[in-house]
Design a protein around this nucleic acid. Structure first.
Lengths: 347, 347
DNA sequence: GCTACAGATGTAACCGGTTACAACAACGGA
DNA sequence: TCCGTTGTTGTAACCGGTTACATCTGTAGC
């Protein structure tokens, strides 16, 4: 590893000048600058990041806070790869890397019911590593801990958790809009009794999707009925159980909007188990457009999220905060109804 | 952020002693140690990582090299989440974090055909950040670049790429064994003409799976026929096309082993398109046990990989190298045949 | 009582950058 | 000619730890 001192020596200038060439090129005369740049390139010099971070009190890294809920081992993020790739790519263009933060808790078995992300540990780690900011990924239902981040004053962007503060904002899909579109589609197909299986209480996207469901009903001139709203938890099992309960009603729904594709698949299985044909006897619409959606039989009509958009938008919001001081408005990514076979055609 | 100097002052000792308490506690007298520990805890002191990395020439971070092939935008890693979670959890127990390295290339459109991972850029980044080691994730077919890492002398562990060197090793599934087991299962069901759709040339797991296919045939006393081996590329489309070609043969196979679940799904679709029933007319076995495997109709029999095992094993191998200097032997994770519906029962 | 040595601690030089401030040159205006 | 300004560069003090070496104390061995 060649240091700035060696470059300086070879150029006959001081280290300060070398540093300036890399950080404030305008303050260095053209001839000196070119000479330093040339030598630096020849020697393959690039500044040591640890030293730089120490000196500037700011590193070229953004922390990623992502825990999975140990209480629910089967949890799969619906689009982790796209999210990470989008983040990485957008951050890299500004020279930032992504540091996956791990608390010592990760190694231990976590106590059931204990808060997922310990904000204190993460905030302390952020300071110790001089991280420029944080990206927070929703890990299930634990929204409370996240507000602690917003209050820490660190620049942070949350994915799918409503977060606000002077240096905090978030990115999420237009969950309400997507859900409303799904319900309107079902209503347009002639359905009057449209049920929903929601996500877990306290989860922001889940709440917005339920809200959108109600709005969609209202806009279609349909009455909202409490007995057609079943609380799920995004997992397939709860879609199965929820659907079974709905079908046991005296006046079962002819269509169901599930707040996640996993639950929609569960609903599909429950319908099949009950001897119903989808879409003939029951129309099903999901949310997320995960990969299996197009592969189940019948292929699932669903509300697609802009998966790569999350990463890009989150990185963009964070980068904006790192340059200005103010938190940008929350980003609402558009959703798109993908019509496949599980809700049939106009009947 | 409280510094070691403040702790030292409050304890009436020098910074050196404070540092010793954290790094070589045995060299400090019990009374002093306890006093320092107490004050450090009260003040919530924890050493600044940038300073520590600079001074020690070694940070508490492990780099993650993971690019996706821009030539194949649809690529999905079959178990990225498990891999990352396993890595994170195992590394965190030794105090390491995972740094997702991003090259400036990530932002630009990459030139088609150009090497994926530029080892020079990554090695330079590793040095600049004083990373303790590297984890390399296979990003498709580009194995050449990876050997450059092994030669760099940095401790590194590759996932699914054969890598060897004084400080390099790798983790992969027992691909040959899994494939052989799949073929033997098909043979035991009475199949004589068993085809395979392989992964891309040059990909190590793909090669091992083909090898296992041949071994399975041999062990079942079946003849290997060149016209029953079709080269695919792990993607669904190639499974579809490959299956169509196989079915067009004068003497089509009654069973097929696809080297990935994605291709197996493609094969399923091709069989359906050709009017064949699975498993009655054609038996299909895949590899990976991705989530869709259990959801397609018929549910896919497949060779399951130990997904969480990858992260744990990779982290373990890396940590071993960070403590000793020698590279441990490559890790071969056991696979398990998961029998579902796509290969029928004994006929 | 004196020396040798082990154990505990302090001093100060690093690690490799950044940046406030000082120094100095060149230049235009009075 | 002298002064104030602007532009360029060097000096040195940081950032916050780690650690080789020196120092000092106490104890065992003779």
């Amino acid at each position: 590893m060649v240091t700035a001192r060696e470059v300086a020596q070879l150029c006959g200038v001081s280290v300060a000048t070398v540093s300036r060439v890399f950080n404030r090129p305008a303050t260095v005369s053209a001839t000196t600058r070119e000479r330093v740049e040339r030598v630096a390139r020849d020697l393959d010099f690039s500044p040591n990041e640890s030293a730089r971070a120490l000196s500037r009190q700011q590193s070229a890294m953004v922390g990623l806070v992502w825990d999975t809920d140990h209480r629910r081992p089967g949890w799969r993020h619906p689009f982790l790869q796209d999210l990470l790739l989008g983040l990485k790519s957008a951050l890299s263009s500004h020279g930032y890397h992504l540091l996956m933060l791990a608390t010592s808790d990760d190694a231990r078995d976590r106590h059931p019911g204990v808060s997922l992300a310990d904000p204190i540990a993460y905030v302390s780690m952020t300071r110790r590593h001089h991280l420029a900011g944080l990206v927070l990924i929703d890990s299930g239902t634990d929204a409370d801990a996240f507000t602690a981040f917003a209050q820490s004053g660190l620049p942070c962007v949350a994915v799918d958790v409503a977060l606000s503060g002077p240096r905090a904002t978030y990115v999420t899909s237009d969950n309400a809009g997507g859900a409303a579109a799904a319900v309107q589609h079902l209503a347009a197909l002639g359905h009057h009794r449209i049920a929903t299986i929601t996500g877990p209480r306290g989860n922001a996207p889940a709440g917005a999707r339920t809200e959108g469901y109600l709005r969609g009903l209202a806009e279609a001139g349909l009455e909202a009925r409490e007995d057609l709203v079943i609380t799920g938890d995004f997992y397939r099992e709860s879609g199965f159980v929820g659907m079974r309960r709905l079908l046991a009603r005296k006046d079962p729904p002819t269509a169901v909007f599930a707040a996640s594709d996993e639950m929609a698949v569960g609903a599909l299985l429950a319908a099949r188990a009950a001897g119903l044909r989808v879409p003939d006897d029951l129309a099903v619409v999901g949310f997320d457009d995960i990969e299996v959606a197009s592969l189940v039989d019948p292929a699932l009509t669903t509300v697609a999220q802009d998966k790569p958009g999350f990463g890009t938008a989150a990185a963009g919001a964070l980068l904006a905060m790192l340059e200005n001081a103010d938190a940008p408005e929350p980003v609402l990514l558009p959703t798109k109804l993908v019509v496949r076979d599980s809700c049939g055609s106009r009947s």
